[in-house]
Write a protein that binds this DNA or RNA. Structure first.
Lengths: 152, 152
DNA sequence: TATATTTGTATCGTGTGCGATATAATTGTA
DNA sequence: TACAATTATATCGCACACGATACAAATATA
């Protein structure tokens, strides 16, 4: 294990490929999301709401690893689109609950075919399923590590 | 190989971890870059210029996989900081050449210790060097694949 | 119970990313 | 040589991200 190599590796070859791969993947999503007039971050918010039902702003933040200064405006835009409603909690007046509207619930059907299209986008001999599985595993470990560092 | 599993995997577990890991990693860089008053994208521009010397706007775009609508304002901010100069090429009047100033060249020394600090940030038992190497490899394959799709 | 601290959400300002488009210079072609 | 297509760069508008900060509600503590 070469210390110099490790440093250069992390320096020039880990952060940038993460940055580039993230942008390129998001671009593919955005193309597919165009027809339902959603952005990728908006789609992420809906994904967690479809999965978990009603959540507080803070819970959405936790799931997406984003802060309220990003999530609040995002939720406002989704409320303008009438996909959800923001409602102050009665139990704790600080908490704002996010509730999907009928339109918001219904939208799930309209994006149901996106996973298929994404799979098609990725269909290629250059990256195997095993590699993707391994990639995903390591990414989650990395996220966990970085998330812990951040809270220190 | 389960087709359903693959779809769900790519759908919910590849794009989001890329997005989250990229943001979290960039945040660590930004903290370290604060003292030299650079952002992470600005640092990327300087990295390619330090490595390759004078480049055209288009060459910077190619290296960073960004378009001119992102890179041009980035270069303008770096020019305001007097780290580089933009100069129209004589050969081809469409081309703008980017030249590092003395200050821009000198800044390389000020960020020389960042790789060490990043390595420290990542020092953890949860992710091995082998995993990171494998991660990086797959990311570059993925970038290549996505880049090719984009040009189609 | 008063007050200090913490928590949940929001606001503000700056810097990206990027789709759409514009413009000028160059190249290709009839 | 005209004129169409391409190329390099820039502009504009919008939607994030995020650091810094504000503020009210809840909780902890003296």
């Amino acid at each position: 294990m070469n210390t110099d190599g490790t440093e250069l590796f992390l320096e020039n070859q880990l952060c940038f490929p993460l940055y580039a791969a993230s942008r390129l993947t998001t671009q593919i999503y955005n193309e597919l999301l165009k027809e339902v007039e959603l952005t990728y971050p908006q789609y992420l918010v809906l994904l967690v709401l479809w999965q978990h039902g009603s959540l507080s702003v803070n819970e959405v933040c936790q799931k997406l690893l984003l802060a309220s200064n990003t999530v609040t405006p995002l939720l406002k835009r989704l409320e303008e689109k009438q996909l959800l409603v923001r409602k102050r909690s009665d139990d704790d007046e600080r908490v704002v609950k996010i509730l999907l509207t009928e339109k918001g619930v219904a939208l799930k059907q309209s994006v149901a075919q996106i996973p298929h299209k994404i799979v098609d986008s990725f269909k290629d001999d250059s990256v195997s399923l095993e590699e993707i599985v391994s990639l995903q595993k390591t990414l989650f470990k990395l996220i966990d590590l970085l998330n812990r560092k951040q809270l220190e």
